[in-house]
Design a protein around this nucleic acid. Structure first.
Lengths: 199, 199
DNA sequence: CCTACCGATCGGTAGG
DNA sequence: CCTACCGATCGGTAGG
């Protein structure tokens, strides 16, 4: 009879993931070894390999868990029956909460995509594309004129992502200006901007 | 008597720098070895070490040459006797030209700062701070109200940098929408946005 | 006889 | 400017 999985399997796995995200965010994926990760988790390398088949699979899981959370949040907001501008505000707040709550995973997602094997990278990129599509659709709802200028849809969405994704390099969650305020400012700047300038 | 430097010393050094920028942009600093760099330059590892004392010094030079070019361009635009909004437009165009013309160096500057030793990192960060200051001053010229809301000055400047720095992840210089047009769109969105929303 | 985990060490390759 | 190497450390796996 097969023995049961350890009762805390999921918790242990998640603890490894969280330590890995921190190490990879700080030193880069290649700059942090499995030995470093094992030390941070206060176990052995073998224990890490019991939970993950390879170092790259850990990186994939760090990115995948985060990008899935972003997509879930975005789909939830997109489905709300609200005016489109209010949706973009809500989406920006939701993104900012996830960025702050999972800052290490976010940084890894943005910096280490190139370290993934093509197949795994494609899984992440596909989810990211769905995120971009959701934002594009919101922008068209806000400025229907954008639908006629199809070439500008993607650039507009990417400029929006630039504003909020870049915050991970400078925003201090315990700084003078709270993340909620920054999210509000970013959404306001973007909404006024495209309202005036893409018509 | 000391032998003269090779007449093409500077050109060779610059060729190394350019190949290094490309390799580090594609594989990451830690993912590209000195042997890879030597192969790309069609020489030996020893030749590389003739021009640079260490791998890290190559990384520093890649970043330093680029951030200096950005600062020079920004200071030139800031000194022009023009209306502040026109200056921000000109600055955005100047940044975009440098990002496109030195895409690999730009990517390395944004992704590999953590791989530098603290002393060298500080040199780069100081120049980056001067860049941010120049943008902040322009924003205050555009919206004098920002001076009274000091806490928002830096966030506003960083949201601007987010928009344009992030372009390196998605902007194709040979795509349907030219970089000049993206720069114009970004500056317009930002100018209308802060005009309306930070008063 | 399984899963969970350890200390020790593998073959290869890094920067120098 | 090259080949021949070094001390160290890498990701991954062995036996028990």
């Amino acid at each position: 009879m097969a023995r049961k999985q350890a009762p805390d399997f999921e918790q242990r796995r998640d603890a490894i993931l969280e330590h890995a995200a921190k190490l990879y965010a700080e030193h880069g994926f290649l700059g942090a070894s499995i030995a470093d990760l094992a030390a941070a988790c206060k176990t052995s390398k073998s224990l890490i390999y019991h939970y993950y088949p390879s170092k790259e699979d850990i990186l994939f899981d760090v990115m995948h868990s985060h990008v899935r959370a972003l997509l879930d949040a975005a789909e939830r907001v997109a489905a709300e029956p609200r005016p489109p501008a209010a949706k973009l505000h809500a989406l920006t707040q939701a993104f900012m909460r996830l960025y702050v709550g999972a800052a290490a995973r976010h940084k890894v997602l943005l910096n280490e995509l190139a370290q993934l094997a093509p197949k795994q990278r494609e899984v992440i990129v596909k989810i990211q594309r769905r995120l971009i599509d959701i934002v594009q659709e919101m922008l068209v709802e806000i400025r229907p004129e954008l639908a006629k200028r199809a070439a500008l849809k993607r650039p507009a969405a990417m400029l929006y992502f630039g504003m909020i994704n870049w915050t991970h390099t400078w925003l201090d969650p315990r700084g003078a200006v709270e993340p909620e305020r920054i999210a509000k400012l970013a959404a306001e700047i973007f909404l006024s901007g495209i309202a005036e300038k893409t018509a």
